[in-house]
Amino acid sequence: EIRVRVEKDPELGFSISGGVGGRGNPFRPDDDGIFVTRVQPEGPASKLLQPGDKIIQANGYSFINIEHGQAVSLLKTFQNTVELIIVREV
């Protein structure tokens, strides 16, 4: 597990896919977790996150067994800083 802090400027600078009942993700199709799919170059998350990172927690909210829409809404709700716990396959 890796813990990262992303400062919104003005957005977080990454996209996610997956989630329960979602269209899945390109990295682990059998896993309904939330995965980072795109990281904006030079964006707030560019040095912190990589495509394929699985987000398991954001600001204390579990991202395990969460629906895609709910994950997106939560990330939009947070002000300024988001603390993520991620799992990265090496």
Rank of each mutant, 00 (worst) to 15 (best):
E1T: 10
R3M: 10
R3E: 05
R3S: 09
R3L: 10
R3F: 15
V4Q: 01
V4T: 02
V4D: 03
R5A: 10
R5G: 03
V6K: 00
V6N: 02
V6E: 02
E7F: 14
K8R: 12
D9S: 13
D9V: 07
D9M: 07
D9T: 13
D9I: 02
P10F: 05
P10R: 08
P10D: 03
P10A: 04
E11M: 10
E11N: 10
E11K: 12
E11G: 10
L12I: 10
L12M: 13
L12N: 04
G13I: 01
G13D: 02
F14L: 03
F14E: 03
S15H: 11
I16G: 00
I16Q: 02
I16E: 04
S17Q: 11
G18S: 04
G18Q: 03
G18D: 04
G19F: 04
G19I: 02
G19P: 06
V20S: 13
G21H: 06
G21M: 07
G21K: 15
G22W: 10
G22L: 07
G22Y: 09
R23S: 15
R23V: 12
G24Q: 11
G24V: 12
N25E: 07
N25P: 11
N25L: 07
N25C: 08
P26I: 11
P26F: 07
F27Y: 06
F27M: 09
R28Y: 15
R28Q: 15
P29L: 10
P29E: 12
D31R: 05
D31N: 06
D31V: 06
D31K: 06
D32R: 11
D32P: 13
D32M: 10
G33W: 01
I34S: 00
I34E: 02
F35W: 12
F35K: 01
F35M: 03
F35T: 03
F35E: 03
V36L: 02
V36E: 00
V36I: 10
R38Y: 13
R38S: 15
R38A: 14
V39P: 02
V39E: 01
Q40W: 13
P41M: 08
P41Y: 05
P41S: 11
E42S: 15
E42Y: 15
E42W: 10
E42P: 03
G43F: 07
G43W: 03
G43M: 06
G43Y: 05
G43N: 06
G43C: 12
G43R: 07
P44K: 07
P44I: 04
P44C: 10
P44M: 08
A45M: 03
A45L: 02
A45P: 04
S46V: 13
S46F: 12
K47Y: 09
K47E: 14
K47C: 13
L49D: 00
L49A: 00
Q50W: 13
Q50V: 14
Q50K: 12
Q50M: 14
Q50E: 11
P51T: 14
P51C: 10
P51I: 07
P51G: 05
G52I: 00
G52Q: 03
G52E: 01
D53M: 01
D53H: 01
K54M: 06
K54F: 01
K54T: 04
K54R: 10
I55Q: 02
I55P: 01
I55E: 00
I55A: 00
I56W: 02
I56H: 00
A58F: 01
A58V: 10
N59P: 01
N59Y: 02
N59A: 05
G60N: 15
G60H: 07
G60P: 03
G60M: 05
Y61W: 10
S62D: 08
F63N: 01
I64Q: 15
I64P: 01
I64V: 15
N65R: 10
N65M: 05
N65S: 10
N65G: 11
N65V: 02
I66M: 11
I66H: 01
E67R: 14
E67K: 14
E67H: 12
E67D: 12
E67T: 15
E67F: 07
H68M: 11
H68Q: 11
H68L: 12
H68G: 09
G69R: 15
G69M: 11
G69Y: 10
G69A: 11
G69K: 15
Q70I: 13
Q70F: 12
Q70S: 11
A71T: 01
A71H: 00
A71P: 00
A71E: 01
S73Q: 14
S73R: 15
S73L: 08
S73G: 14
S73F: 11
L74D: 03
L74I: 13
L74S: 04
L75P: 01
L75C: 02
L75M: 09
L75W: 04
K76V: 07
K76L: 08
K76E: 15
K76C: 12
T77H: 13
T77D: 09
T77M: 10
F78K: 06
F78T: 13
F78S: 09
Q79D: 13
Q79R: 09
Q79K: 13
Q79S: 13
Q79C: 11
N80Y: 12
T81K: 08
T81I: 10
T81G: 08
V82Y: 06
V82S: 02
V82D: 02
V82T: 04
E83S: 06
E83F: 04
E83Y: 04
E83H: 06
L84R: 01
L84M: 14
L84Q: 03
L84I: 07
L84G: 01
I85F: 08
I85W: 09
I85L: 14
V87T: 14
R88F: 04
R88N: 05
E89V: 07
E89C: 06
V90Q: 06
